Amino acid sequence: MTVAPFLTDEPAPADGGSAPGDEGAFLDALNVEDDGQGGGPAEDAAPVDPGAPADGFIGTDAFFAGFKVTHQLAGLGTGLRSLQEGPDAPGAREASDAIYACLYDTPSLHFLIQPGSLWMQRAAVIAAYAVPLGMSCKVELAQRRAARAKAAAERQATARAAAASRPGAAAPAATGERPVHWQEPIP
């Protein structure tokens, strides 16, 4: 089998296969120079020094402070104590630092760790509007569900009371008899 014949100046073997022992030899013909702009493996990335801000980025301490506030606000908004206590749990700081490292190593996500990021400012304004609105909708929907459940329970209680008050209507549980449907044959 010929491997990327368009990358070499040498003709492919006549049988269409590779010559034994030349696996990868076609790469020798490529002329690739390092442009000095990185883009290599993650090992080339600068190590993240905990707490020290990198050039143009907030530091891991500031990121962890935001991490904690985000959890606390989410916990207050949802009423979930687990979210409020999350940043104090074991491993929370390590998780925050790992998230920071991912953001730092991903250029398209740098806006999340740049101080004064216009995107983050806009997101905060949107969240300040949308989160309380969403919580209000949640409360209103819960009130509607509770009102519907209460009305259904009242209707059911009224129907039971009306059935029990009819002359000759004995409660099946009290007599042990099963009510007979009008279409059933009489035994």
Rank of each mutant, 00 (worst) to 15 (best):
residue 18 S to C: 03
residue 25 A to P: 01
residue 75 G to D: 04
residue 155 R to E: 14
residue 120 M to A: 12
residue 141 L to E: 08
residue 155 R to Q: 14
residue 114 Q to N: 04
residue 5 P to Q: 06
residue 22 D to M: 03
residue 181 H to R: 15
residue 154 E to N: 11
residue 130 A to Q: 15
residue 132 P to N: 05
residue 74 A to N: 07
residue 18 S to D: 07
residue 132 P to G: 11
residue 87 P to K: 07
residue 30 L to M: 03
residue 2 T to S: 03
residue 67 F to E: 04
residue 6 F to T: 00
residue 142 A to W: 06
residue 164 A to R: 15
residue 132 P to R: 10
residue 136 S to P: 00
residue 112 L to C: 08
residue 184 E to V: 05
residue 168 G to Q: 06
residue 58 I to S: 10
residue 52 A to T: 15
residue 123 A to W: 09
residue 38 G to N: 02
residue 115 P to H: 07
residue 170 A to T: 12
residue 68 K to M: 07
residue 95 A to M: 10
residue 6 F to M: 02
residue 96 S to R: 12
residue 83 L to T: 02
residue 183 Q to M: 09
residue 165 S to C: 06
residue 72 Q to M: 14
residue 137 C to I: 12
residue 138 K to N: 12
residue 150 K to R: 14
residue 182 W to L: 11
residue 181 H to F: 13
residue 85 E to T: 03
residue 177 E to G: 06
residue 112 L to S: 05
residue 178 R to E: 15
residue 93 R to A: 11
residue 145 R to Q: 14
residue 97 D to A: 10
residue 129 Y to W: 15
residue 96 S to I: 10
residue 146 A to C: 06
residue 84 Q to I: 05
residue 157 A to R: 12
residue 144 R to H: 03
residue 143 Q to T: 01
residue 122 R to L: 13
residue 156 Q to K: 09
residue 47 P to T: 05
residue 97 D to G: 09
residue 134 G to A: 07
residue 50 P to Q: 11
residue 96 S to L: 05
residue 24 G to C: 04
residue 169 A to Q: 13
residue 74 A to K: 09
residue 167 P to M: 05
residue 21 G to T: 11
residue 164 A to H: 11
residue 95 A to E: 07
residue 133 L to V: 07
residue 37 Q to C: 01
residue 11 P to Y: 00
residue 115 P to N: 09
residue 89 A to V: 00
residue 51 G to F: 12
residue 118 L to H: 03
residue 9 D to H: 06
residue 154 E to A: 15
residue 43 E to A: 14
residue 125 V to T: 10
residue 78 T to N: 04
residue 164 A to P: 02
residue 26 F to H: 04
residue 25 A to I: 00
residue 14 A to G: 12
residue 45 A to P: 01
residue 180 V to L: 14
residue 158 T to S: 09
residue 161 A to I: 03
residue 109 L to M: 15
residue 56 G to S: 06
residue 182 W to I: 08
residue 101 A to P: 02
residue 62 A to V: 02
residue 82 S to Q: 13
residue 145 R to E: 08
residue 36 G to K: 01
residue 83 L to G: 08
residue 151 A to R: 13
residue 146 A to T: 13
residue 120 M to P: 00
residue 114 Q to H: 02
residue 27 L to T: 02
residue 109 L to Q: 13
residue 55 D to V: 03
residue 52 A to K: 15
residue 88 D to V: 04
residue 165 S to A: 15
residue 11 P to V: 04
residue 68 K to I: 04
residue 24 G to W: 00
residue 77 G to H: 04
residue 105 D to P: 01
residue 170 A to D: 13
residue 49 D to P: 02
residue 26 F to T: 00
residue 143 Q to D: 03
residue 52 A to E: 15
residue 179 P to M: 10
residue 182 W to G: 09
residue 112 L to A: 13
residue 96 S to D: 07
residue 64 F to K: 14
residue 159 A to D: 10
residue 117 S to N: 06
residue 97 D to E: 15
residue 158 T to Q: 15
residue 116 G to W: 03
residue 38 G to Q: 02
residue 80 L to D: 11
residue 131 V to P: 08
